[in-house]
Design a protein around this nucleic acid. Structure first.
Length: 1007
RNA sequence: GGGCGCUUAGCUCAGCUGGCUAGAGCAUCUCGUUUACACCGAGAGGGUCGGGGGUUCGAGUCCCUCAGCGCCCACCA
């Protein structure tokens, strides 16, 4: 055996040995009874294992190895997660560095890129997981995109759809403009920032807001019901002018309004604030969407249309200032909501999305999802460790709102919903307006209002001859004169409904510019104007409304060339391109069926048969698939053997930071789908921090790479540094010196073993606890048995840190520093040393698997240490432990005496020891350990009392005044205590007896 | 605004349902190569347990209160 243990030389070989043994797989374990199962929380697919993962793996492996040694069939199922937004964001960053983006690549090519990235990072993660020594069953490894797991996702979605627990709704959602996707409520984080609070003169009110631009889409004004200042307005509809932009608001009272904040008046913007959306629900307000998915102001923003939100704010505030409508501006602190993955500001907006209904009663169960998930924990069917997180869990559960599960990112499980264009029976006849003044000038009018020319009027009259107005049930027109006028000529005497969504594209800065110049901008959009995509969106909204309202009607629409182009694309399919956009709508009637528009919906596991079905482009929230993790990995929805055998799992080990994201959702979904719990116990560990208590992060540069630490100090040392040093669930600081300290311990264990294995005459297995010959033998076995007992209990109670400390203390202090030293003196201890070592290796194994397995080899066993038997607890003799403490104290005191008298450690001064408690054998032992020369005859000096032994030593050394003083004080305090009748009568007898014993001991010292 | 946690030696932290003269590791100081280990050994110093009050025979531990720090949740526009 080498003098120092070099982890690097052994770890990889040992891991290979384990892996090739097949013993990570429970099928190859002998254990009977209920298996012990942990689902490994999937690490993010970003490719690098950080200390948080390393910690989790350490705790999980600790539990798994402990249980395996105890004879359980253990399954630790590893896997990886596609980590939707996180991964997509990461790959988008890489693409940005390459100067491209996902839109340019297109969906399929982009997904291919992500797959390549994930394959690579998963490889890294798996290697790093192995280096941590993780004894997980690689043969059962799963990935959320595996066929089976994807089926599980679809199955869950479809069942929930059938139970009406998932629904599609137009609601306010958190929108990340960078990710171009929705986010769940808990995926939004908050960042405090300096903000301006603008007080705006707003009709008869002053309204305070941090986001003035949203006031353009206000539809209500809220005041407190008891606020006397504003009572008279409640119930009124007011027209408000905001620097020329006109809005209509309904004034209402709601007790949610804080009278004392700002002016006590809230301008309500239902489309862009979750709070306001709730107001709108309660008070039946209209919702006007102002900001689009790109973060730009929409049509409804009037002159600010097409401007990015922040610019629109500046422009609008400037206009308000000029209009004298800014009352004042205050500097305040504000919480900005940001995306948890890319830290972009969140834009709340209304959008059509899929949701999980958490407050809806589940058919046949009489309870909501929320209730199911709450009760499981309330009933203690699931135990949460540490317990304080139970409260956190309930607090979150109680506040849970419907969960938005559709994401617009591409990397994820496609929503198993297909749409088919369906018949509405609506016939649409489109007419372009005839020649306008702008047409005559060959310039682009866009939103600018031009009249028809005389020629235009004639053209319209010509067309009118061809049509019978009674052939149409409803007539729509754009709100621009050229279209309205055309309509009135085509359909004399008929009612024409104006709709501004049918307007021409807005040419912005190019309004009134020549057609040829305009043509150049059609694809990319017009500066400060619109893109055709935007026109299509508003026309689409118009169609949605028409499709619902006018089933089987004949509809005429008079509008513009630009609108017509979107008709073509929406109703006949195709894409915007140079060619399709530079065509002008020919005059005359254009027939369409709106049949294609209205969707038929199919929700199912497979794509429906028949043609024309198109799958929902959105993907599912990554936590939706993660919530099925404990059973989708075991084969569900198939009733597989594994599923029956290993579910519910035993322990879920994860960080407290994802209790909501993941733990709560697993409980919720499992209770719903399986009417069972996903796990029996949740063990939540704390966060790993740096030496100064800061979170480790790339930007701070304070992160420690676990692999670096493994290279430097070995996996066992790293594991110990992550296990020891914190109370249950508390955050843990990790730094290099600490890891180095545990490296020293690992080396100590190695050297203890080296000493024992090389000093015994034969290395062999000792089956039964050997007979004791001396006090020291009895003592070390008592300590050892006590340690086994306490460590086992700690591990059963998830007190890993405490267990590790006890192990450390026994190994280093009791065994190495005392017993091995005694063994050198007393000799003939082969059996006890081997007996202890073998079992010590087993107990250390879950903490430090590599070094222990390595030492185990010297025992020449058939089995790996990994599957040895956890030792049984033998007899613990408390009296022996007390007596031995006496011996230790004597030795320490003798050593101190020597040191105080400047006697070199190598000198053996003569010394006569007399003891009331310790026999001569032990006095001799003590003398040897303290390196004094034991003589029989009394030396010619005053005796010095050390502990309860009388020491006659050829030295002069008085007990110091301080020492004497301390002892006297101590004796006095004990005497007072014992003299107190209340103490002796009310304290437990064993406490009183112990106090007496200590008093006696202390008095002996002073004798 | 609600909830949770923390404050114990120079540093990092243990201390469960109240009962050893309050512990550990690191650091510091002194001494040291004695047939495992200098990634070591032997020893030492260092704390009125954040402040104040209370309950109790007895409080680091329970209760109240004040102060500081941290985290989580929440629709202050």
């Amino acid at each position: 055996m080498a003098k120092a243990y070099e982890p690097k030389q052994h770890e990889k070989d040992i891991y290979r040995l384990w892996e090739e043994s097949g013993l990570f797989n429970p099928d190859n374990l002998k254990g009977k009874g209920k298996p012990f199962t942990i689902s490994m929380p999937p690490p993010n697919a970003t490719g690098i294992l950080h200390l948080g993962h390393a910690a989790a793996l350490s705790y999980e492996d600790l539990m798994i190895r402990y249980k395996r040694l105890q004879g359980y069939k253990t399954l630790w199922l590893p896997g990886t997660d596609h980590a939707a937004i996180a991964t997509q964001t990461k790959v988008e960053k890489i693409l940005a560095e390459e100067g491209t983006d996902r839109e340019t690549l297109g969906r399929e090519k982009f997904l291919q890129r992500v797959r390549e990235y994930v394959t690579q990072s998963q490889g890294n993660i798996k290697n790093q997981t192995r280096r941590m020594g993780s004894s997980c069953d690689w043969s059962r490894e799963r990935y959320t995109f595996d066929e089976g797991l994807s089926q599980a996702v679809n199955e869950a979605f479809v069942r929930m759809y059938e139970d009406e627990l998932v629904y599609r709704g137009h609601r306010i959602v958190n929108w990340c403009t960078r990710c171009a996707s929705t986010l769940a409520d808990d995926e939004v984080e908050y960042q405090e920032q300096d903000a301006k609070l603008y007080y705006i003169k707003y009709g008869p009110f002053i309204v305070a807001t941090t986001r003035p631009e949203t006031k353009l889409a206000d539809t209500g004004v809220a005041v407190h019901p008891e606020d006397e200042r504003y009572q008279k307005y409640v119930g009124q509809e007011l027209d408000i002018d905001l620097a020329g932009h006109k809005i209509k608001v309904k004034v209402f009272a709601d007790k949610e309004v804080d009278k004392d904040f700002g002016s006590g008046v809230v301008g309500v913007t239902p489309a862009h604030s979750a709070a306001d959306y709730n107001f709108a629900q309660r008070h039946n307000l209209q919702t006007i969407k102002l900001i689009d998915e790109q973060g730009q102001v929409m049509e409804s923003g009037g002159k600010y249309k097409g401007i990015a939100v922040l610019d629109a704010r500046k422009a609008f505030v400037k206009d308000l200032e000029q209009a004298g409508q800014i009352d004042k501006i205050e500097e305040i602190k504000n919480n900005l909501s940001i995306c948890y993955r890319c830290e972009t500001a969140i834009e709340p907006l209304t959008s059509e999305q899929w949701f999980v209904a958490v407050d809806k009663e589940i058919p046949g169960r009489g309870k909501t999802l929320k209730q199911l998930a709450s009760e499981t924990v309330k009933n203690k069917e699931i135990e949460i460790v540490p317990e304080r997180f139970v409260k956190t869990y309930h607090n979150w559960m109680d506040n849970l709102h419907d969960w938005c599960i559709s994401r617009q990112i591409w990397w994820g499980h496609r929503i198993p919903v297909w749409y088919k264009k369906n018949k509405t029976g609506i016939k649409i006849t489109f007419f372009r307006h005839t020649q306008s003044e702008a047409n005559a000038l060959k310039i682009g009018a866009g939103h600018k209002d031009y009249k028809l020319t005389a020629k235009g009027v004639v053209q319209a009259q010509e067309i009118a001859k061809e049509i019978n107005p009674d052939d149409f049930d409803v007539i729509f027109s754009s709100d621009l004169s050229r279209a309205k006028d055309t309509a009135s000529i085509l359909f004399p005497g008929k009612k024409v409904i104006e709709d501004n969504r049918l307007r021409e594209v807005d040419f912005g800065d190019l309004t009134d510019k020549s057609g040829s110049l305009i043509d150049k901008h059609r694809v990319k959009g017009f500066p400060n104007g619109e893109t055709y995509q935007q026109v299509r969106d508003r026309v689409q909204l118009f169609f949605d409304e028409v499709a619902n309202k006018y089933k089987n009607k004949r509809i005429a629409i008079v509008a513009h060339s630009g609108t017509w182009k979107t008709f073509e694309i929406i109703l006949n399919g195709g894409d915007f391109s140079e060619d399709s956009l530079n065509v002008h709508a020919p005059l005359g009637a254009h027939q369409y069926n709106l049949d294609q528009k209205q969707n038929e919906i199919h929700v199912g596991l497979e794509k429906p048969t028949g043609s024309g079905w198109v799958q929902d482009p959105d993907t599912l929230d990554t936590w939706f698939s993660s919530s099925l993790w404990t059973f989708s990995t075991l084969g569900w929805p198939e009733k597989t053997k594994d599923f029956k055998k290993f579910h519910p799992t035993t322990v879920m080990e994860t960080g407290y930071d994802i209790i909501f994201f993941w733990v709560a959702r697993m409980i919720l979904m499992t209770e719903y789908l399986l009417e069972d719990k996903p796990f029996e116990t949740v063990y939540l560990h704390g966060m790993i921090r740096d030496k100064d208590g800061r979170k480790m992060s790339k930007s701070l540069g304070n992160g420690i790479d676990p692999i670096d630490m493994i290279d430097k100090f070995g996996t066992d040392a790293l594991r110990l540094s992550l296990i020891i040093g914190s109370a249950l669930g508390a955050d843990l600081r990790v730094y290099e010196e600490k890891i180095a300290g545990y490296r020293n311990f690992v080396n100590k264990l190695w050297n203890i073993s080296r000493f024992i294995l090389t000093s015994v005459s034969e290395v062999k297995t000792i089956k039964k606890q050997p007979k004791v010959k001396t006090l020291a033998d009895k003592w070390i076995l008592s300590e050892f048995n006590e340690m086994i007992d306490e460590v086992s209990k700690d591990l059963d109670n998830f007190k890993f840190s405490s267990a590790g400390e006890k192990l450390y203390h026994f190994t280093w202090d009791d065994l190495a520093d005392w017993y091995l030293e005694i063994a050198k003196i007393e000799k003939d201890k082969d059996e006890i040393l081997l007996y202890i070592l073998e079992r010590l290796l087993i107990i250390c194994h879950p903490f430090t698997p590599f070094v222990t397995e390595n030492i185990w080899k010297y025992f020449d066993k058939e089995n790996l240490l990994m599957v040895a038997d956890w030792p049984k607890v033998g007899k613990v003799d408390k009296d022996t432990i007390i007596n031995f403490a006496e011996l230790k104290e004597l030795v320490v005191n003798l050593r101190n005496l020597k040191a105080a008298n400047k006697i070199p450690p190598t000198d053996f001064p003569d010394c006569n020891l007399v003891s009331a408690i310790l026999s001569d054998d032990y006095l001799q032992l003590a003398a040897k350990m303290a390196r004094v020369n034991l003589i029989d005859e009394a030396v010619d000096v005053e005796p010095i009392y050390v502990n309860s032994s009388k020491v006659l030593i050829d030295l002069s050394r008085e007990m110091s005044d301080k020492e004497k003083n301390d002892i006297e004080k101590y004796i006095k305090s004990l005497e007072i205590k014992l003299a107190n009748e209340k103490f002796t009568s009310s304290a437990p007898p064993e406490v009183v007896a112990e106090t007496k014993r200590r008093l006696e001991q202390a008095r002996n010292k002073l004798k």
